[in-house]
């Protein structure tokens, strides 16, 4: 008997990754990165891409926030809310695994 999947909640300790049915791919025709999923193709903006690329199954949400804050030269609190909201939305659509 299969155990049912449960809704995952984002915490600083979560380790996000892309599920098997989702992948990021550069599209040479449109010169942009696409996120491919079963029925939909997404065209994430630069910040979304930076978050998704860090969903590598090794980095914690806390680490991703610190890393992005350093890259964007801004404080972590400013980044944290956006990253958490993004991951919650993508996790609820099963596009990111927590």
């Amino acid at each position: 008997m299969m155990t049912l999947r449960e809704r995952a909640l984002v915490s600083m300790q979560s380790v996000p990754s892309l599920p098997k049915h989702v992948r990021i791919q550069y599209d040479p025709v449109r010169h942009a990165f696409a996120v491919l999923s079963p029925e939909k193709v997404f065209w994430p903006n630069e910040i979304s891409l930076d978050i998704l690329r860090r969903c590598d199954g090794r980095s914690t949400v806390g680490h991703i926030i610190a890393d992005l804050a350093s890259d964007y030269d801004t404080d972590q609190e400013a980044v944290a809310a956006d990253v958490i909201a993004f991951l919650r939305e993508w996790s609820d659509k099963l596009l990111v695994k927590l």
């Binding site: 049912l4 999947r5 449960e6 809704r7 995952a8 029925e39 996790s91 609820d92 659509k93 099963l94």
Partner: peptide
């Protein structure tokens, strides 16, 4: 079922 199964 948000986060459990997508329903289109």
């Amino acid at each position: 079922l948000a986060g459990v199964m997508n329903i289109d």
